[in-house]
Design a binder for these strands. Structure first.
Lengths: 222, 222
DNA sequence: ACTGAATCTCAGAGCAACCTCAGAGGGCGG
DNA sequence: CCGCCCTCTGAGGTTGCTCTGAGATTCAGT
């Protein structure tokens, strides 16, 4: 077992094709998790840690393109490859517009798929959004906080979104209202922001986020 | 999701148009807050922090032009774009005279609006309010005094307000009465100013604020 | 040096803002 | 159907800020 394997989420409803891909990708050394519909894909995309997503375009419960769109709208920037039977230019444009990075037309050549996947991962690791936290780093794609002298800390989707906004600009103070509007728009309780700040502090230490009483929150390590 | 989203205040009474603009601007990555009349616009314009204001010309409760004028008269210099149905030269002149930076005539092209907005924001690189204290700096946004060779000192809201007024004009002496009126209007005790001067001296050193007996206080450090 | 006025110092009451955390609810995998 | 994780809620508990008041100290003018 490769300990440093790249984690792939495979969203493919055709069991036979899914199994085939799992074998192919596992043999290449990837750590592949298959799910079989868009709902499951959305859930795992939002909650799991992935180096890349491989998504079929035609899915039960939710179209692949919609899935990508919904993930992007929630701040998930994990590099994504769409699989499709249709190969018109229009389809391709729609897929890329939704936020997918690459597009493979079925039936595809195994080697081509692997090559494109490697390219996707290579491209993305270069430009992967890693935000400096003053000593530690937030890797947005895998939703982890990496430390030179400690184990990585894993964050949930909301925790990551919150830290991301606060860390985007170290000097700036973000108000509860802004954070609530941008992350918890489906939440009634204005307390949600406080709670997630609490979660982040519990995971990362109290110094990570500074409270500016009456104004909001700010990245702690100056 | 744009991490360092620009904050826009949208003052537009037509709900349909407002919603349309919110969608358009949010999709562009802006952090948009809509309000629906001039009073609300005035309140938010005065109390919030905005990168730009987008204001309809015809509003209930207060005309858009008057809104801009009143904001300007209160020292708000946030770049502002007016939306209007009428497009005569006279209207345009009146809007710009009131202090608006740009002027878009309805019905407008989405791309044009976005382009103008970008131009507006580019032109107006917001200067974060950092006040010089002679060696040290007061960062009003995060309410801290930053020192080249020491840890930041955190101030409370009232401490910051007091120091801000005193430091605005280094040579000038501010009377107790003025300070009390501007900061402690809800306080009965005329001693409140003294107390906060004491707090500031305790945090920043006795030399920070100089007493001019019988007259008031003055910034102490050169 | 004496005196009254101005100023400084500081403990503490009252209160809003904030923190903490248990748990309900939902989605999903097994 | 059960258990897991994530999300959000709501109810205290706690902290920190604000302002008060009263005694100590300094100052200007005699």
């Amino acid at each position: 077992m490769d300990l440093d394997a790249r984690r792939l989420l495979l969203v493919e409803d055709d069991r036979r094709l899914s199994q085939l891909l799992v074998r192919l990708l596992t043999a290449e050394g990837y750590d592949v998790v298959p799910v079989y519909d868009g709902q499951a894909g959305l859930h795992h995309g939002l909650t799991g840690r992935w180096d890349a997503l491989v998504i079929d375009r035609t899915l039960p419960a939710m179209e692949g393109v919609d899935l990508v769109r919904r993930l992007r709208s929630r701040g998930i920037t994990t590099p994504t490859m769409l699989l499709t039977a249709r190969g018109t230019t229009e389809d391709r444009v729609e897929g890329l517009d939704a936020g997918a990075e690459d597009y493979v037309v079925k039936p595809f050549d195994s080697d081509e798929l692997l090559a494109r996947l490697r390219a996707l991962l290579r491209r993305h690791t270069d430009t992967s959004p890693v935000i400096d936290l003053g000593g530690r780093r937030l890797d947005v794609a895998s939703r982890r906080v990496l430390s030179p002298d400690a184990d990585p800390v894993e964050l949930s989707a909301q925790e990551c979104a919150l830290l991301r906004i606060i860390a985007a600009n170290p000097g700036r103070v973000r108000s509860r209202e802004e954070l609530h509007r941008r992350i918890f728009q489906n939440a009634d309780s204005p307390n949600a922001v406080d709670t997630y700040v609490y979660y982040l502090r519990r995971k990362l230490g109290a110094g990570m986020i500074r409270t500016v009483r009456g104004l909001g929150y700010q990245l702690g390590a100056t």
